[in-house]
């Protein structure tokens, strides 16, 4: 009962923050709302007894990546952006395309989850407790080793790309 109330409250807040991110005028304000929504998601993880994930969510997303976002938003002169020649119709079309893709994905996930029988919830002690961290670690380095490595290489490439773009002379 209590958990249910907390979940719906958090979910509503997350959605509200998400809406605020795309509607508020100032870019810095929308970053703040994004951080808030990340923190609320972390609370959802706590509700699921996944403390490790919650802390990592705060540490990596809220504390790390979003700080860099904020940097960029603060430093890059945003007033210059509208001057660049952007065809409004092209922007609309792009928006519809991306929105449609996300919608299709959501529908697919929903259908998939609906068709699949509910998995039996795993015994509580394997989920909660200190095992939590070990399990994440095991999964990362066994079942998901390849995606993990691919993701790290991708990040490295992005890093190099950023340096090449931003550095004036190499």
């Amino acid at each position: 009962m209590g958990e249910g109330v907390a979940f719906y409250l958090l979910a509503a807040l997350i959605l509200a923050c998400g809406v605020a991110v795309v509607t508020v005028r100032s870019a810095v304000h929308s970053v703040i709302f994004l951080v808030a929504s990340f923190l609320l998601v972390a609370m959802l993880y706590v509700l699921l007894h996944a403390e490790f994930l919650a802390v990592i969510q705060v540490l990596v997303y809220a504390g790390g990546i979003m700080v860099l976002y904020l940097f960029v938003v603060m430093l890059v002169n945003l007033k210059r952006a509208p001057e660049q020649r952007v065809d409004p119709r092209r922007r609309d079309r792009l928006g519809i395309l991306v929105g449609g893709a996300v919608l299709a994905e959501l529908v697919a996930i929903g259908l998939y989850a609906f068709m699949q029988p509910l998995p039996a919830s795993p015994p509580a002690e394997t989920v909660a407790g200190a095992n939590n961290i070990e399990r994440v670690g095991w999964l990362l380095y066994t079942d998901f080793l390849v995606p993990f490595e691919v993701a790290s290489v991708l990040l490295l490439v992005a890093l190099i790309g950023a340096i090449v773009l931003a550095k004036r002379e190499l």
Binding site: V76, N77, R80, L165, A166, R168, E169
Partner: peptide, 14 residues
């Protein structure tokens, strides 16, 4: 390196 006309995203202002 940059000329006044071609300001890119990464140019910094004085």
């Amino acid at each position: 390196m940059s000329t006044p006309g071609s300001q890119s995203l990464f140019d910094t202002d004085e």
